[in-house]
Design a protein around this nucleic acid. Structure first.
Lengths: 199, 199
DNA sequence: CTGTTAACTGGTCGGCCGGTCAATTGACTG
DNA sequence: CAGTCAATTGACCGGCCGACCAGTTAACAG
């Protein structure tokens, strides 16, 4: 557990992963070169190949790490939520919205991976949405939410509304009439929560 | 107005644009090579350079064409809508949803362009959202919609919910509990429209 | 029929791409 | 201390990248 000063493969891997994350998030996989990655992480091109094999290998490692963190974070939130809370849904929306607000790079990474047809994130999302839908179903049975809508669609609706907001965030930031993050969240919640009230 | 058999620069341009559109939509700008573009459109690489200058030039032309069609289509719909119709909003949602369903490639093109920081689509969307927001404002003043929410946020909410649905369409198509396009649209409209009813 | 223009082609260029490899260096083992 | 192994380096490779250019050919105006 000592700390070698000159050589530290784990730290090196971490530095490469961080630089690759930033570059891939910014420009997408295809537009980034191994030379940029090397320069960005302060190591040689060969060293990246030594640790990650190919450019694709590095890309996979970057995605796997980011997605694992995302998945862990979200699952934790979903499981620690109090099932008896009548305001569970709006709190979940807020929590998800805040997560995206604090992790804009993850949003972009998802977008890139998704456009390239990556399926690994799909399985994750399927499970998370499934967990959320189960909560909605419980709330419906408890009479807290209208029960004539598909619980999965309820979750998908707010996930879509939040995700796309941050995916296009920097564009519409200065549109006339468009509010900031908090104002949008507030209005969305107004609409969404009233739309889900029981008859 | 005759039809030359051997040489037709406009047809050539159109063929190149179509092939480029398909390839760029599928793989993104950076991952497509001039050679692929040439093969895909059945012409020589040099001819593409002759007509569009550089690869970037072709990319710009592809985007401009697709965006212009999108813009024209949307603006037409927005303007021909009957202002006195109390069900205007839900019809607009349905119309937009159907447009995306029928033009999945445009959705992907927007996603790519957007991730790359293209700002031209931003101005378009700003104007379209502005037009829609104006309609919402009118409906609010007529007492047809609740007036304690920002009209721009109303439009953004449904645009986000629809866009992101199709952006992730092929992924969640087979998720457990997830319905098809029509079922999602129906549930979203239930939530959205009730959420917007006046007090 | 002739001259001009532009569509179109094949060949080629310098440069950068991802990837490899032999050699060096540092850390740890016994 | 020698010996081992992995971390790290720099030089190098074949190939493909986007772009260019000289030459050819079809359309068209006069």
């Amino acid at each position: 557990m000592n700390e070698p000063t000159t050589r530290d493969p784990e730290l090196t891997r971490a530095r490469i992963l961080q630089a690759a994350f930033d570059l891939f998030v910014e420009k997408g996989f295809a537009a980034v070169t191994m030379r940029e990655l090397a320069e960005g992480s302060g190591v040689t091109k060969s060293l990246i190949h030594h640790h990650f094999g190919t450019k694709d290998g590095l890309w996979d490692a970057v995605k796997e790490l980011a997605f694992a963190r995302y998945y862990q974070d979200q699952k934790e939130d979903l499981e620690q939520a109090d099932g008896a809370d009548s305001d569970l849904l709006s709190k979940s929306v807020v929590r998800y919205f805040r997560f995206l607000a604090e992790n804009p790079k993850v949003v972009r990474l998802f977008s890139w991976a998704h456009l390239e047809g990556d399926s690994s994130c799909s399985h994750m999302d399927a499970e998370l949405v499934g967990l959320g839908a189960e909560r909605v179903r419980q709330a419906q049975q408890a009479g807290q939410l209208r029960d004539d809508v598909n619980p999965t669609h309820v979750v998908t609706t707010f996930v879509n509304a939040c995700t796309q907001w941050f995916a296009t965030c920097e564009h519409h930031a200065d549109w006339p009439g468009m509010g900031n993050n908090e104002q949008y969240l507030e209005d969305f919640l107004k609409i969404f929560m009233r739309g889900l009230q029981p008859d």
